[in-house]
């Protein structure tokens, strides 16, 4: 009886731990697969204004305009620029386990936010994984600001492999 109990505990704890490790990666992989269907890696996808049809990632804000770049660092670092547009903006990076390894807004950056991201320790930010997500949030709760932010992001945001420069 003791053998069965010990076997039960060993397998249950192992399965529990493995599941907890896997769930964040599953969520990120699902999000990244959805992004992959919208465009290639290392290139901004300028997401349309958020409404109830925005169902790629849970709890989107209808007051923020999002741009997202699927990061693939397996062939080297990626250069990112989030262009200042005169209102709130942040650039954030998420590793494959969901950790928000970097977040900076335009005030702290003093204007454009420009960084070089690598998988390991090189560059300005080490993501800690080969793949991840870069996300720009711009505060745009009305049509006028949406139009202005959209113009700036399409003209000046950059997400590209450094080797392409």
């Amino acid at each position: 009886m003791i053998r069965y109990l010990l076997g039960f505990l060993l397998v249950a704890v192992s399965a529990h731990t493995a599941t907890l490790w896997y769930l964040p990666r599953l969520a990120m992989n699902t999000a990244m697969s959805r992004l992959e269907a919208s465009g290639p890696a290392n290139q901004w996808i300028h997401v349309p204004p958020t409404d109830e049809t925005s169902r790629r990632v849970v709890r989107p804000s209808p007051d923020l305009l999002y741009s997202v770049c699927l990061l693939d660092l397996s062939d080297g670092p990626v250069r990112i620029r989030a262009a200042d547009w005169g209102d709130y903006m942040s650039l954030s990076l998420f590793a494959a386990n969901t950790d928000n390894v970097f977040a900076r807004n335009e005030t702290r950056a003093g204007g454009d936010i420009e960084i070089e991201v690598s998988a390991g320790q090189g560059g300005d930010v080490g993501l800690g994984s080969d793949r991840g997500i870069a996300l720009i949030r711009r505060l745009a709760p009305d049509d006028a600001r949406i139009a202005r932010a959209d113009t700036v992001r399409r003209e000046n945001d950059i997400c590209e492999a450094v080797s392409e420069r």
Partner: peptide
């Protein structure tokens, strides 16, 4: 939320119910 110090339960919870949430210094 979003932190490298999050425990496995919090990290998995945020992945399901608040993926891509910012760390507290920003939001």
């Amino acid at each position: 939320i979003g932190s490298e110090t999050a425990d496995p339960y919090t990290r998995a919870y945020v992945a399901r119910r608040g993926l891509l949430g910012l760390r507290r210094e920003e939001a």
